[in-house]
Design a protein around this nucleic acid. Structure first.
Length: 798
DNA sequence: TTATGGCGATTTTTT
DNA sequence: ATCGCCATAA
């Protein structure tokens, strides 16, 4: 075999592979073909990053590594190469021939893909699904936290944790921190729990346990106080057999450091590692990755330093900036072609981000058309601003050009959403707020989760305390305090003390009540033992035995929606059981719940305008994006204005916001705005000023008579709207409820008449907000989606 | 043990 | 404006 033949074969193979990914641009192709060794992909916004990742993994599984030249001569012959070329040119390449070209194809189970959200992991999995056949061979894709939780469930015992450890969310943690403050007599004003939580989190990010932290901060009085809290907090967590989110990572790294065998097991299990959104990793996450990748060094990280917006939460931008130093043989690939937005939007985004100094350097470009100019609108105040946005959206949709789902309103602070929400309700524009209140943060859901958690792990103090008097069992705060005192003195298990309350004089009076409660929990635990009943059955049993729903009905007036939530949780349990079949466990379910957010349930197809914070919008795209509150003091926020490094982070946030838009970007600011209860006049945001004037088109509402508050926004008006908002929320979240009476109701199959579109047939109806979305086929006019109350439809009898 | 009233602080938060 | 916190009252 001559060298020439070899070369010919290799270039032919490359062509064949490239043909499989022919939609990719040269840079993406480079990333796809680079399988082994460290790889850094700097992927700008909208550069087809996820597609590149998915195809890269597909390539790894199908063709594997590149050939070493000595491997070639062993099997190729003149005839083989000839036939291959012929089949390729004729487009008759068989699957078998393709498979023959693979060199050590990588088993999917050897690949680990780490993301930040469950949603991203799910998307990756489903897009990879096409390339996978066998279930058990699946690529492992998950969030840092989910992967660490799984590792610790399996090997946590080696560092002193039970398989049934509970996971505490920020709310649970807050409760413990407050207890600690109280126990240590720390003034919550001088040292707020927020600061303590952040500091402990930072310590854990730096892999410091409370001892190490204590030593490190001994000369700082405030931090020394925090060290005390940290110590007590960690003791309480340990007693409760619980971990917080930071513990998941820190403990996994500790486990890896302590047990070489476990580390090696995972290093060999996951020979190929891919990390998405690498710019958002913190120190401990980076350490976790480095340990895992140490042996095989097949590590591909993907990120964009310009989109790093979580530094305030510990994300360490150095991780991506220094990647090449840590892995000297790193290949760097830049994906700079944007496929998402019009060139006007890209130009604007570049112009803004160029004002930042600490960057890796990257310039987005696009082949897309200029599109329309960026709209910059000045409204009179925040009510006017919200109305402007709602009206614009309504106009576009009623003219039939757009769907509600084409629009997003992205804001800096959650508090901006209220006014927007009111305007949307008033205009009858269906909307949905993403983020804010989470399903699993609702009181009733947390209560039910708490029952399940205590049954799973009776040491779980926080959850036990949550439910001990819920529904009311006449066990008050005093009793709890006494029990906690005993716990402190004897070091006995909390549950044990409650069970044997009669042994303690202080608890004599309530001992009967306490043992009734522990008896109930014991009864549940017993039922679970040996998996006699399913989780669903257990859940129903809890509801029945605690009489929770009746207590709820008696206690609060909005029990209706709360009961719906409780039922929805029952459904979620059933879904979980269905998915995992005989592998379903209580710990497994609780873990999934703890690591779940409502971002994961976000459905792009719902016919509603999306309202969310810019942070929540990262990774998403919308044809038309509104950015309200583009003012100094709002965005950038008042606290950031003085610090240059914070301004840079805000500017990255602005960059993220701008690059969410595909076709149209509309920036809105106001002349005056009620901010924290004070009316303020803010200058337009520096970020909107950084957009070149020739890309923008300005408009303003001026000299319009200010509405008398009394005439339009009377007290009763607001009360009514609030009720409407509430009901709209429960409809969108729960998807049930009764139809408002004022609308004509339409059913599937009804014939209807419309002024513009003529007659048509109702294809589907769907409740959106306090209205109905109808999908109607108007024959030649096509199928349209209309809101029942605004379309002036008439029913025809046929 | 639970209900009210004044006071202060007030981003963003993939897990 | 609004939420959460603490103190005081019932």
């Amino acid at each position: 075999m001559t060298e020439r033949k070899k070369e010919k074969f290799l270039s032919l193979r490359k062509k064949i592979i490239e043909n499989d990914f022919k939609k990719m641009n040269p840079m993406q192709m480079k990333a796809i073909m680079c399988v082994k060794g460290p790889l850094l992909v700097l992927a700008g916004a909208g550069s087809g990053k996820t597609t590149a990742i998915v195809n890269r993994i597909a390539n790894m599984m199908r063709y594997g590594e590149a050939y070493h030249s000595e491997e070639i001569s062993s099997f190729i012959t003149e005839d083989y190469v000839k036939k291959l070329e012929l089949d390729y040119v004729n487009g008759e390449l068989s699957e078998e021939e393709k498979i023959n070209l693979s060199v050590n194809p990588i088993e999917p189970s050897k690949i680990l893909a780490i993301t930040f959200t469950n949603k991203a992991a799910g998307e990756l999995k489903s897009r990879l699904g096409k390339f996978l056949e066998k279930d058990e061979q699946k690529v492992k894709a998950g969030t840092f936290h989910a992967i660490c939780a799984q590792i610790l469930r399996q090997f946590g015992e080696k560092i002193g944790y039970s398989k049934h450890f509970s996971l505490y969310d920020a709310d649970d943690v807050r409760g413990i921190i407050k207890d600690c403050q109280k126990a240590l007599n720390i003034d919550g004003k001088a040292l707020p729990y927020r600061a303590i939580m952040a500091e402990i989190s930072r310590a854990k990010d730096q892999m410091m346990n409370y001892k190490e932290y204590e030593n490190a901060v001994s000369n700082d009085f405030k931090k020394a106080e925090i060290a005390k809290v940290y110590k007590l907090y960690q003791e309480k967590m340990h007693e409760a057999g619980s971990m917080d989110f930071d513990d998941l990572l820190m403990n996994t790294v500790l486990l890896f450091r302590k047990c070489q065998d476990v580390l090696e097991y995972y290093q060999d299990k996951f020979e190929y590692i891919l990390v998405d959104e690498y710019q958002d990793t913190n120190t401990v996450q980076c350490e976790f990755i480095n340990l895992l990748a140490q042996k095989h060094k097949n590590l591909c990280v993907v990120g964009d330093d310009d989109q790093s917006i979580y530094r305030f939460r510990g994300a360490n931008i150095e991780n991506i900036l220094n990647f090449e130093q840590i892995y000297p043989s790193t290949k760097v690939i830049r994906l700079e072609q944007n496929y998402r937005s019009t060139s006007n939007i890209i130009k604007a985004a570049n112009a803004v981000i160029e004002n930042n100094t600490s960057r890796k350097g990257k310039k987005l470009w696009t082949d897309n058309k200029p599109g329309c100019k960026i709209k910059v609108h000045t409204a009179r105040d925040e009510i006017d601003e919200a109305k402007y946005i709602a009206d614009r959206i309504f106009e576009s949709v009623s003219s039939g050009k757009k769907n509600y789902s084409d629009f997003a309103v992205l804001y800096r602070m959650n508090s901006q959403s209220n006014i927007l929400e009111r305007a949307f309700v008033r205009s009858g524009v269906p909307y949905r707020i993403v983020g804010g209140f989470r399903f699993y943060e609702r009181k009733e859901i947390k209560d039910m989760i708490a029952y399940l958690s205590v049954i799973n792990n009776p040491k779980d103090e926080v959850r036990l305390r949550r439910i001990i008097n819920r529904p009311k069992r006449a066990i008050g705060e005093k009793t709890i305090l006494r029990v906690m005192d005993i716990l402190q003195e004897t070091g006995r298990d909390l549950f044990d003390i409650l069970k044997n309350a009669s042994e303690y004089a202080q608890l004599q009076r309530v001992s009967a009540k306490l043992s009734t409660f522990t008896g109930l929990i014991d009864y549940f635990i017993e039922k679970c033992e040996g998996q006699q009943i399913t989780i669903s059955e257990l859940y129903q049993l809890i509801l029945k035995k605690t009489d929770y729903i009746n207590a709820l009905t008696a206690e609060c007036d909005d029990s209706e929606s709360r009961i719906q939530n409780i039922n929805e949780l029952a459904t979620n349990i059933k879904i979980y059981e269905k998915e995992y079949q005989e592998k379903a466990t209580l710990s497994g379910f609780l873990e999934e719940v703890a690591l779940m957010t409502d971002m994961d349930e976000y459905d792009l197809n719902e016919q509603a305008v999306t309202l969310m914070t810019i942070h929540a919008a990262k990774g998403l795209e919308f044809p038309i994006v509104f950015l309200p509150g583009m003012e100094e003091g709002v965005f950038p926020g008042g606290q950031m204005i003085s610090r240059p490094s914070d301004i840079e982070e805000e500017r990255r946030l602005a960059y993220v916001a701008i690059t969410r838009a595909k076709e149209q970007l509309c920036i809105v600011n106001t002349e005056s705005r009620m901010l924290f209860g004070i009316i303020s006049h803010n200058k337009p945001s520096r970020f909107s000023m950084e957009i070149p004037k020739n890309l923008a088109e300005f408009s303003a509402v001026r000299n319009i008579k200010k509405l008398e508050r009394g005439e339009c926004f009377s007290k009763t008006y607001f009360e009514e709207k609030l009720r409407l908002i509430e009901s709209a929320r429960s409809f969108t979240q729960v998807g049930g409820g009764n139809a408002p009476e004022c609308f004509i109701s339409f059913n599937i199959g009804d014939s209807v008449a419309h002024k513009v579109f003529g007659t048509g047939k109702v294809l589907s109806t769907r409740q959106v907000g306090n209205d109905f979305l109808l999908e109607i086929n108007f024959g030649q006019m096509g199928t349209k989606r209309l809101m029942s109350s605004f379309s002036n439809l008439e029913k025809i009898n046929s």
